[in-house]
């Protein structure tokens, strides 16, 4: 059974210093086991200025089993799949401890953005580029951050227009964007999943 009381306490704590920590969590549709985390790109990295959404799923044995996390926002990073956002991070696997929290896990993701570990890659293509042609890697990572992780890059109107262009109704697009805090990727996923 999911330890609801602990999860609620964790959420309160994250909410309290989200401005300071740069990580936050929102619950999806009253299901305490599904959440959306966001982390800000660390300063001084190609991810700076970006806001990255992470899909979080809590297994029923949480916190004794690690939370399942996956990037929703596309990220160009050796330890993150450029295809589906899957993350290779030890504390999300065998190094998990129940004394860790969602917040520490998100902070570890943030740290992972600053210090990639190309020797233990999730995405071999990215890792190879990182090792062989670092300048190109930085360029691509920055470009992906600009394209996928910058909320301010488009106004709400343009975002709605973009979604309408894809074939969704204007109302649905608007409400989807609102519920995802303006994140177009999130809104798109929401629309697609119905």
């Amino acid at each position: 059974m999911l330890d609801v009381s602990r999860v609620q306490k964790e959420l309160v704590e994250i909410e309290r210093d989200k401005n300071l920590s740069g990580v936050s969590i929102a619950i999806c549709e009253d299901d305490l086991a599904r959440m959306r985390g966001t982390i800000t790109g660390p300063v001084g990295t190609p991810y700076e200025g970006g806001i990255f959404s992470v899909d979080i799923h809590l297994p029923s044995a949480y916190p004794f089993e690690p939370p399942k996390m996956q990037f929703i926002t596309k990220v160009w990073h050796p330890n993150v799949s450029s295809q589906n956002g899957a993350i290779c991070l030890d504390i999300l696997k065998d190094q998990w401890s129940p004394a860790l929290t969602l917040k520490t896990a998100l902070l570890s993701l943030q740290a992972l953005l600053s210090t990639p570990e190309p020797d233990d890659p999730q995405d071999a293509v990215v890792a190879q580029q990182y090792l062989r042609d670092y300048a190109t890697f930085v360029g691509t990572a920055r470009y992906w951050t600009e394209t996928f992780a910058k909320r301010g890059s488009l106004g709400l109107k343009e975002k709605v227009a973009k979604l309408v262009e894809m074939g969704f109704s204007e109302d649905a697009s608007k409400s989807a964007l609102e519920s995802c805090g303006g994140d177009e990727n999130g809104a798109l996923e929401k629309l697609c999943s119905g």
Partner: peptide, 14 residues
Amino acid sequence: RGRGQEMRCTICFE
């Protein structure tokens, strides 16, 4: 002694 007579379990947060 000064810090109270209780502790929080950092797993269940109780």
